[in-house]
Write a protein that binds this DNA or RNA. Structure first.
Lengths: 191, 191
DNA sequence: CCTACCGATCGGTAGG
DNA sequence: CCTACCGATCGGTAGG
């Protein structure tokens, strides 16, 4: 089912506003003004609630990761290549969908139940699958042996600055950025 | 000047509450109850404002980092050893002062001016000094050549999961944790 | 540290 | 998409 133009505009502006101010600090009144309406109440013709916007942004992002993971898991390539592609996936998502990424990383905890639990479940699933690839790489001798959770969290988190930093683009190209990060992290993993 | 026992208690509970709920979602009413008062208004005998609590937590954390940095900069050791000690410093702060750490990392943006600017300045100062050590290590051939900002941000951010994760301590000791992280990151830096 | 109370703002509804 | 309005909650003050 297609989104109406107005609803799409509301989602886009909400995404940017939540990123700038944080979910709680972002008011529906300010969102209304950015969308071109005088009163917050007018928004409710198009949406159900403020949290519905947060849900949509969080779950759309989650879906992006899980789809990427699926494709990479199924490919017939080495653990090293899989991890490289996962890191590239993270970099690509963080730099192409900046505001969604921020919300996905930081604001999901304002989801209420049962969405909060559902989100945590998807996230845990993603992490478990990422961890399995790392584990496998250690077993076949491609990666340094270490605690898988520590390794996973370090990689995972080390990419979390991109979505805050990238918009400023301090004189480095996407390509060079990705190359440096990959080199650093893969060099660290390598036995 | 020494803190009174009540004020110390308020700060401790605020630190925990801000960590659990986030600064904006944490109400003075709930803080009052945790401290053992019936009404939020009673808190104002001891403190000036809600934001004053956030300021204290943020700037105390910042001071901890800057003092650590100063000691490490002045030591007569190699860039490799300096970076190792900086990473250990981050791990130590994140695991010994968990709630302050969370607020320092995530909630500082709710500071109002002029504190927000002051905080950003201290942070930028710290990052610049960390970056100088990395740069130096590249110049003397100890580290892989790469964009210093990318390298710095990756290291810096890669330690940001500790303060969220450590309290759960999923069956790994502090020592083993530190060893694995150091090995991974230093291996990655190494030329 | 309490009671009583303030103005402001919040997300959201009614009704057109 | 507008006006009018709701109850709830917020941080904070007055006064004792």
């Amino acid at each position: 089912m297609a989104l109406t133009r107005t609803k799409k505009k509301i989602l886009d502006e909400a995404s940017k506003l939540f990123q700038e101010k944080g979910y709680l600090a972002a008011s529906m009144q300010e969102l209304a003004v950015r969308v071109g309406m005088k009163k917050a109440s007018s928004l409710y013709t198009h949406i159900g609630s403020k949290e519905e916007l947060l849900q949509k942004i969080c779950f759309d992002s989650a879906r992006g990761y899980l789809e990427g993971m699926k494709a990479i898991e199924d490919a017939d390539i080495s653990p090293t290549q899989k991890v490289e592609r996962l890191i590239s996936l993270h970099i690509q998502i963080a730099t192409t969908d900046v505001s969604s990424m921020t919300i996905f990383s930081d604001e999901w905890r304002h989801l209420s139940e049962p969405y909060l639990q559902e989100f945590r479940t998807m996230r845990r699933d993603y992490e478990r699958r990422f961890g399995r690839i790392l584990q496998n790489g250690m077993e076949v001798g491609e990666f340094l042996e270490m605690n898988v959770t520590v390794c996973l969290s370090t990689i995972f988190t080390s990419l979390r600055w991109l979505h805050r930093w990238y918009p400023e683009k301090r004189g480095i190209s996407m390509k060079a950025l990705e190359a440096d990060i990959l080199r650093f992290l893969m060099n660290g993993l390598k036995r």
